[in-house]
Design a protein around this nucleic acid. Sequence first.
RNA 1: GCUGCGGUGGUGGAAUGGUAUACACGGCGGACUUAAAAUCCGCUGGCCGUCAAGGUCGUGAGGGUUCGACUCCCUCCCGCAGUACCA
Length: 796
Amino acid sequence: MNRYTPKDIENKWIKNWEETNLNTTKKESGKEKFYSLYSFPYPSGDGLHVGHAEGMVANDIAARYNRMKGKNVLIPMGWDSFGLPAENYAIKTGVPPQESTEKAVKNFIEQIKRLGISVDWNLELGAHRPDYYKWTQWIFLQLYKKGLAYKKNAPVNWCPKDQTVLAAEQVIDGRCERCDTLVEKKDMYQWFFKITDYAERLVKDLDRVDWPESTKAVQRHWIGQSEGTNVKFPISNSESQIEIFTTRIDTIFGCTFLVVAPEHKIIQNLKPQISNLQEVESYIENARNKTELERQSQKDKTGVEIKGVKAVNPFNNEEIPVFVADYVLNTYGTGAIMAVPAHDERDGEFAEKYGINNIEVITAENKKDNERLTEYGTLINSGEFTGLTSEEATSKMQSWVEEQGIGFRKTTFRLRDWLVSRQRYWGCPIPVVYDPEGNPHAMDEKDLPLVLPTDVDFKPTGESPIKGSESFKKLAEEKYGKGWYFEPDTMDTFVDSSWYFLRYADNGNDNEIFTKENVNYWNPADLYMIGAEHTVLHLMYARFFTKFLFDEGYLTFDEPFAKLRHMGIISGPDGRKMSKRWGNVINPNDEVEKYSADTVRMYEMFMGPLEEPKPWNDSSESGVFRFLTRVWDLSAKVQDNVESSKQEAEINKLISKIEKDTESLAFNTAIAKFMEFVNFAAKETSLSKSVFEIFLKLLAPYAPFITEELWSSFGHSESIHLQSWPIVDESKILREDVNLAVQFNGKSRGLVVVNPEASEEEAMNLVKADERLSKYITNEPKKIVYVKGKILNIVL
RNA sequence: GCUGCGGUGGUGGAAUGGUAUACACGGCGGACUUAAAAUCCGCUGGCCGUCAAGGUCGUGAGGGUUCGACUCCCUCCCGCAGUACCA
């Protein structure tokens, strides 16, 4: 028998599979479909990392398994290829992003092929290619038509280093998620998508998808649905009112002041009444200049009373002061709150500082003195509502404000509209043109794509580099007339990745974004593998787009990812996060060179549960290589006519184990079971060919190369990957005697070997006959618990 | 603080009500070899005990439910991740 030489074997089969179009997507009638989707990777110049490999291999095992199970399988790949790294590289080196991106893509494709991922490369797409972004622009136009894409002047998050605005979701702890620079607030005229229209559905429909609970929880939290009440408080001596939002209307008798956000428009309306206008205005000016981080991290609450203005509590007609304070956010609720210092931590803290009084209106049985009760309880000091529970009072008070016409029940969300403009070059151009007066006009669909110009200077200036493009200017004037110009901003790259999964099956279709037939056949994805870092942004935006296209009648489903799993983050061998800084980065292609692609695939799956974080361990990896070598060596023992009921039994048991584990993505335990089988088979003097061939089929999704080579060495001309998944033959599984654990009072004392169908009496007789066990029987058993084939517990 | 996940040998982990530690790594001992590598075989949770038979403890801690608990329930501790003035 020759030795296992993976490099030659693997390269041979990569070529062979390509030549025979093995991975071409098939859509045969009468078959179920399986869509195995890997999240749109950014084609970085550094190449594939172990996390990519982990997710892609999981997708590939699922794809190959389902193919053998007789399904039509789609496993595509594309590139989230717009974005800052390529542009920054261009600024540094002058290499156009088009060029560096295509180079990186080429490298990615080679690496993915080398891992044996059965991607259909005919369907490969890239966000940066005009044949793709034509349709990104098309979606923009559809949103625009429905009023869901709009332009407004708003204070936005501005990253001074990247020289662009950021979405709320891209600001982490007041810093730019990409470069960690402190984000500034800036008023700008920008494009938004009205994702807030979908807030309720985005929360509710999470109940329908098979996703990790943690990911759903993060999305729910981000969207932040709260049930509450809007109530209008009249202003004394004025027509104006301040509308507040509260989730605790039951505490309204304890409201001793109102607070409005510094940006609240009511302040402008009340100006003539304000006696300390200068103080109020300087506070507002001050708050405006604070960065997001400064506002968040200040420990003390600050604020100023708006003197000369009093609000009236509609429940008890008492006059209360009004403050402006930046702990109230203009972007949430109505931008104004009723403050109840006795039952809210924040209001309490503020009231203490500014000497405002406290009225307790809620009590509970076990409440201590001086304790601030923030939970529900029973109402006190609340007029006719006194004595009611918080729940009862909430419902009565809501009815009352509705009757009075001064308020209503309201569901409020934390989610804000999605700011999509970016003042950068390497992104999808926004398909909008301005007339000489500066009014925006949507482009006509037939004029798409609006192609990114190449005559630009990449240096960032705070405005899009596209502004300087002569060709862009010329194109606009030729098409629309003198003085017309294109929108120079590009779209957030998250727009590109919000719909790519819908395009694969129709990639290259220049007439429409996709055919309904294809898109609704393959989608939603049956397995979406994506890093755990993408829990809010991409997933929420993609769900929004899908729901929009569903509403527009293009899709028959409104959740894009039926089943989603994260791959656990792999840390370095030292247990630290892989980073160039620590020199602990494992490059999957180096590992392929060192051992084989099959080894890297199986090791990454064997490390631990797919979703758990886990450290890389070089010597464990060599254990997987050892396993594959043992598989290879086993083939030398294979003979045509070996009759072994034991081997038949073992392989049939293995079929159902591997099937169960593969379906539940428990790849680590599946591999352990392969190893157990090999440990068994290695002890046999000869191995039945039919048994070994079943083994190879089971292993094929995991280790596609070695199995293909051995399969072909047995004289098969058709690929192992085109074979059907083996079917368990129950009759071959031996009803062997089993070890029955024997316990006394729940303590294990030994075992007896019995037929799994043995009666309790038979089992007891065996125990009595066994000296080492019978010695424990000191008196008549009080109770005997017998579970066939598992346990015999004798209670004394 | 809140939300979610987790805590099992020297290490990665297995077992979701039934012999805790499968599988693998590492370690120890042995075979083969001039030697090494590779390969193969055996042992490998702690403690007591003659390396025996056997006993005993043991899944973060403490309680509970059960014939029986890593698994279910309660209280608490610790770690990781996300999030944070959201009214």
